[in-house]
Amino acid sequence: MTATALEKAAETQAATVEFRGLRREFGSTVALDGLDLTVRPGEFLALLGPSGCGKTTALRMLAGFEHPDSGEVLVDGADVTRVPAHRRDAGMVFQSYSLFPHLSALDNVAFGLRMRKVRTTERRARAAELLDLVGLAEKGDRYPHQLSGGQQQRIALARALALRPRVLLLDEPLSALDAKVRLNLREEIRRLQQELGITTLFVTHDQEEALSVADRVAVMRAGRLEQCAAPAELYGRPATPFVAEFVGTMSRIPGRRAGDTVEVLGRRLPVDGPAPEAGEVDVLVRPESVRVRADEDGEARVVATAFLGAAVRITVRLADGSEVKADLPAHEAAGLAAGAPVHVSLPDRPVLVAERTPRP
């Protein structure tokens, strides 16, 4: 990044974004159901959730492309709920790139500046700086059809940054790319965001993508916010069973709750967080928390193994027919082939408990 670009980026103050009680209905479908969420200045926040959860609707409301039935959108305390999109200080990058096919890369980046009547020499200089910023300084004269998908998305990112927005909006910008390009570009986006210090909202349904780049991740479900937390907290201390199972891999083991404990795999463990009343429940556990060892008298059986590099994922069928996944170091997994009898246990620490789900 050039010194000039850095100086100009520093002129842009990161904004605080607030969603207050946003509700939006499309016919009988409730897209947002009272969304309350604050994005801190300079924060990279990912909106994560399954299709139809409302994450893109929330982003489009901040961009000005959608308006809520009720509620407010605020930027630095100013109500922008009804402000037209072209008057909002936000840059947006779409999944489909949306580049103009008849314009060169340089002219695509400079397009918004041209609409704002910026002088030709200034807008071309700024566009050239931004092409350099995204590593495409030598591609300025190329047209979109002459660029790869990853390069086109970099051009779209540069175009969004050209107007020096106070908020950057990314609507699943990597989903159309292949795995290697997606990995490289998400790391590049994160680097640029940190370098510029711009408040950023990133919509994705890919949990790995969200956890790897965001300062915080807001998990949404059916138009509501389930939990908003740093990636490590979201993974290690999910607030709800939905978050636990949506973020990362989670197994359900049958148990019975009594008081503040739950009986599972022959022992009693403390319950973590809210839980159903006493009775039949499911205990939710991560693969790395499950312990498996060979045991000739064990009632559980190995169903399958999968090599993951440093670890091996073992799928075990318990005596009651339920299955649990365990991630073991490769040397501990040696000899645990399909059909091997094993003993399964959990560490002595609190566990998340959910309502019992019917077994197939």
Score class of each variant (00 low, 15 high):
residue 103 L to Y: 07
residue 15 A to R: 06
residue 287 P to Q: 06
residue 201 L to V: 10
residue 288 E to D: 14
residue 197 G to A: 12
residue 134 V to G: 01
residue 47 L to K: 03
residue 246 F to D: 04
residue 117 K to S: 11
residue 295 D to P: 00
residue 92 M to I: 05
residue 235 Y to T: 03
residue 326 A to Q: 06
residue 252 R to V: 01
residue 215 D to F: 11
residue 82 R to K: 13
residue 108 N to S: 06
residue 141 D to I: 12
residue 32 L to A: 04
residue 201 L to K: 06
residue 48 L to P: 01
residue 6 L to G: 10
residue 42 G to Y: 10
residue 78 A to W: 14
residue 261 T to G: 08
residue 74 L to D: 04
residue 33 D to V: 10
residue 125 A to I: 09
residue 281 V to I: 08
residue 127 A to W: 07
residue 159 R to H: 14
residue 124 R to H: 02
residue 191 R to G: 13
residue 185 L to F: 02
residue 327 D to L: 13
residue 26 F to C: 03
residue 40 R to M: 15
residue 162 A to D: 03
residue 1 M to E: 08
residue 37 L to F: 13
residue 51 S to I: 01
residue 242 F to D: 01
residue 61 M to F: 07
residue 242 F to V: 06
residue 38 T to I: 08
residue 201 L to Q: 08
residue 282 D to H: 06
residue 189 I to W: 00
residue 134 V to D: 00
residue 148 S to I: 04
residue 301 R to H: 09
residue 333 A to K: 08
residue 348 D to Q: 15
residue 17 V to F: 09
residue 98 S to G: 10
residue 353 V to R: 01
residue 12 T to V: 13
residue 314 I to R: 10
residue 11 E to W: 09
residue 222 A to V: 09
residue 44 F to R: 00
residue 243 V to G: 07
residue 97 Y to M: 03
residue 36 D to E: 00
residue 216 R to I: 02
residue 28 S to R: 15
residue 42 G to N: 12
residue 189 I to M: 07
residue 101 P to A: 04
residue 168 L to Y: 00
residue 96 S to W: 05
residue 147 L to F: 03
residue 11 E to S: 13
residue 2 T to R: 06
residue 321 G to W: 13
residue 77 G to N: 02
residue 10 A to C: 11
residue 42 G to W: 15
residue 304 A to C: 11
residue 109 V to M: 05
residue 283 V to I: 08
residue 272 D to Q: 15
residue 328 L to Y: 14
residue 41 P to A: 11
residue 5 A to Q: 13
residue 180 K to I: 02
residue 55 K to H: 13
residue 9 A to T: 12
residue 3 A to M: 12
residue 227 Q to D: 04
residue 260 D to T: 01
residue 12 T to W: 08
residue 227 Q to E: 00
residue 315 T to D: 12
residue 346 L to M: 00
residue 262 V to S: 01
residue 143 Y to T: 08
residue 77 G to T: 02
residue 139 K to D: 14
residue 245 E to Q: 06
residue 19 F to R: 06
residue 190 R to F: 01
residue 345 S to W: 11
residue 316 V to L: 10
residue 35 L to M: 14
residue 53 C to I: 00
residue 163 L to S: 14
residue 68 P to R: 10
residue 130 L to Y: 01
residue 7 E to M: 11
residue 32 L to M: 07
residue 67 H to V: 11
residue 218 A to W: 04
residue 177 L to G: 02
